[in-house]
């Protein structure tokens, strides 16, 4: 059985603000499924429909086989949810927060301690500190503990790593990997494209619409062109010139390099180097490069 099934989901705010526009996907049991897209893509709306917080305006969705409209009570006792904003009680201590949520979900910390043990040991030294005084990374971990404490079947994490530094992000994804091994289905959203590779499958979303759903590897494989990375002594000038170069299909900055693809598949990239040199650029380096999820996303926009 699929852990989550979304069918032609539509969510409209007010008269005409379509946040989710006919989106369908399904999440298999025990997988990490990523909703990848920028702010305002509709990720949070999808999460809220799936966690029964919002009613869909069209289509349907099930979580663990239960309908999000009819069976909201069953869903509420089966899912864990971590909203995008830090949503714990800032004036309660770490332990009080955890204890509160455990009790609200009809369980005790002891009962499911094995699930949160690896995360909680890091929090334990601060267990008497008020949640409001924790660091960003620690808050994240506490929120995850609170969402996990009742052993949910499906865990919904809405942008857990937004605004978190790369080191803490890396740690967080390692935790999710461990949870996956405990057979918890995880649906997670992120605006960071590089995190897509950490998911088993991803859905790329922009402006309420689904761009693509597949494994990261398949999405990368389906990229139609050969991609090159290029750099020169003056990157800003290089980008400007590439924009106006009629052989170029797409070009954009990508870290240290710029990524480009050419209109003609048989185009010899050496020609481009020559052309750029005539434009006054130096130290030009042009190499074939691997496609990343970010390239795919840009392609789909």
């Amino acid at each position: 059985m699929e852990a989550v099934n979304v069918k032609n989901l539509v969510k409209i705010y007010g008269k005409d603000k379509t946040a989710v526009d006919d989106i369908s996907f399904s999440v298999n049991q025990g997988e990490i499924f990523g909703l990848i897209g920028p702010d305002g893509a509709g990720k949070t709306s999808i999460f809220r429909v799936l966690t029964t917080l919002l009613l869909p305006d069209g289509g349907s969705a099930t979580v663990d086989g239960f309908d999000v409209v009819k069976d909201y009570k069953q869903i509420r006792s089966r899912v864990g949810y971590m909203p995008g904003k830090f949503s714990l009680y800032q004036d309660l201590s770490v332990e009080e927060n955890l204890n509160f949520f455990a009790t609200i979900f009809n369980t005790t910390i002891a009962e499911n301690y094995h699930l949160i043990k690896d995360i909680y040991v890091q929090l334990e030294p601060f267990k008497n500190r008020r949640a409001g005084q924790l660091s960003g990374g620690m808050k994240q971990k506490l929120a995850l503990c609170c969402a996990l404490i009742h052993k949910p079947v499906v865990l919904f994490l809405d942008e857990p790593t937004t605004g978190v530094d790369p080191v803490s992000r890396k740690e967080f994804w390692e935790i999710l990997q461990q949870l996956k091994e405990q057979n918890i289905t995880i649906v997670v959203s992120t605006p960071y494209m590089d995190e897509a590779n950490r998911c088993d499958r991803i859905a790329m979303i922009q402006s309420g619409q689904l761009l693509s759903v597949d494994t990261p590897a398949n999405i990368i494989k389906s990229y139609p062109e050969q991609l090159y990375a290029i750099k020169a002594n003056n990157m800003h000038a290089l980008l400007k010139i590439l924009h106006e170069y009629n052989q170029v299909k797409s070009s954009y900055a990508f870290g240290e390099f710029a990524h480009i693809s050419f209109k003609e598949p048989k185009f010899n990239p050496d020609q481009a180097v020559t052309y750029l040199e005539t434009k006054g650029l130096q130290d030009i380096e042009l190499i074939k490069t691997e496609v990343t999820i970010e390239d795919c996303f840009i392609k789909l926009l």
Binding site: D39, T162, G163, P191, Q206, H236, A253, F297
Partner: peptide, 21 residues
């Protein structure tokens, strides 16, 4: 640029480059 889509992020950086120029 937190949470901004990859294309707009690059447009944003174009603005930064222009200002730096």
């Amino acid at each position: 640029t937190g949470g901004v889509d990859p294309v707009t992020r690059r447009q944003f950086w174009d603005l930064i480059y222009d200002a730096a120029d």
